[in-house]
Design a binder for these strands. Structure first.
Lengths: 247, 247
DNA sequence: CGGCATCTTGAGTTGGGTCAATGGTCGTGG
DNA sequence: CCACGACCATTGACCCAACTCAAGATGCCG
């Protein structure tokens, strides 16, 4: 059976969680309104799916740019490398999120994208969309909006990296992650952080040891229950307080 | 006399440095090719110009989004604020650069934009461009490319903020500034940093005192000659070396 | 010329980095 | 199913780069 038809049927029945376009749906519908006919069009655009094992790279620094990627399942990261070996994780992307905008300008990716756990991705061919006519305008607008939002996130993150203390950084990370889990209908207070402590450190601009120490401190303060990758948030309010009024 | 005609004439004569669209020209031509007829179209789009005195705000956090801004002359900064008073300068924009993408998603700006010196700006009405037909496709593509490049810059900057030492940060800033001055035909080794040391610090995630101390250190090392805002770069290579092989 | 913002410098403190050792966890293959 | 090895996480002791606080110096504008 034609997979696209299958997808469309599922969309119409509002049972989208397993369809290929579900990931696109989530990202594109939330920020604004996308019509059903546009969703059908998006389904047709998605011809390439990738299944990655944990640790696999989707693309590397310098890889040719084919389009944006929507995460259908799993967890991805993007990271940049300094020639002295330092790594900066620029972001984590979970189900329903779209990324890969860094390749549009030069047609090569400027950072690498790596699977944190087994993941499934949909390629959204960017050039194809650009060459489509006016009836794809809503989709084109959504891509602007997504990029704009990405820029906004980077602004917040630069604020964090530029002047926040360790506790504030980790608290922000946990609450952001919690928020995104809630958005997806998962428990917001029982997190599973599948990335390593090193990934978290590279995202937050801290060393592994510091990340670990702050987890321990948060646990001692009664804010968290930490069992390796399993984190229970016990005191949301105090975490928020740590961010708003640090030190 | 109609200013748009004036502008177009100047473009055709290749004497663009004083025309309103010159700023747009620079940014839009460099990354790719924009036809002359497209440039004419862009000229027509620019209806609003703003003249700001040093210290004036172009927009604030929460201001309604009207479009992107091209810097015609002067120097602008964008910055975000944390409620405890911390400031993060997200970028400096000089003649020919376009910014303001953070407002596309929510139709409100997420950061403030402030003039560092007396500056002149052209408003590029974003919604108008989006509603134009296919003959504006090259322009639309260039906006994607500009946003993509902005995202790439933020990646580099997050790397800097996340793990670079003070000397590396300042060296990067100086070389970036130098590069952009060269692009504009100004001297690359005799810089005038019109922003305050505090602005530089807020951009680089350091305190004023640290910025000042590193300037002094660079001078002692024979890399710079520092006279307040006037900076002479004496040893480009060693600055680059500091970035590539820090500590 | 006076006043105010900016810049520099010094002395002391500290948060996070470094280095090193140990303890846990997970996946693989016998 | 268990044992091994590799990777990951935690903890401790020590150190240093950048922060804080404070005092002058410099430069700019009215």
């Amino acid at each position: 059976m034609d997979d696209h038809v299958l997808v469309r049927l599922k969309v119409e029945k509002n049972v989208v969680s397993r369809s290929c376009s579900s990931c696109v749906l989530r990202s594109l519908c939330l920020p604004g309104k996308i019509s059903h006919s546009m969703l059908d069009k998006i389904d047709k655009l998605i011809q390439v799916r990738k299944h990655l094992k944990a640790g696999d790279a989707l693309y590397y620094v310098g890889s040719p740019f084919h389009g944006l990627y929507a995460v259908k399942s799993g967890l991805m990261k993007i990271e940049s490398y300094h020639e002295d070996g330092k790594v900066q994780v620029n972001g984590f992307y979970m189900k329903g999120e779209i990324y890969g905008f860094d390749g549009i300008d030069t047609h090569r990716h400027l950072c690498s994208s790596i699977a944190i756990e087994d993941s499934e991705l949909c390629l959204i061919p960017f050039d194809t969309i650009e060459h489509k006519g006016e009836d794809y305008e809503p989709l084109k607008h959504h891509i602007y909006a997504l990029m704009s939002r990405e820029i906004g996130h980077y602004h917040s993150h630069m604020m964090l990296l530029g002047s926040a203390h360790g506790e504030e950084r980790l608290a922000s990370f946990l609450l952001d992650f919690s928020y995104r889990m809630r958005e997806r209908g998962s428990s917001a207070n029982n997190l599973i952080l599948r990335m390593t402590r090193e990934d978290i450190g590279n995202y937050l601009g801290m060393k592994v040891e510091t990340v670990s120490r702050i987890f321990t401190r948060f646990q001692e303060m009664g804010l968290l229950e930490v069992h390796n990758k399993y984190i229970d948030i016990l005191d949301n309010l105090k975490l928020k307080e740590l961010i708003d009024h640090p030190h």
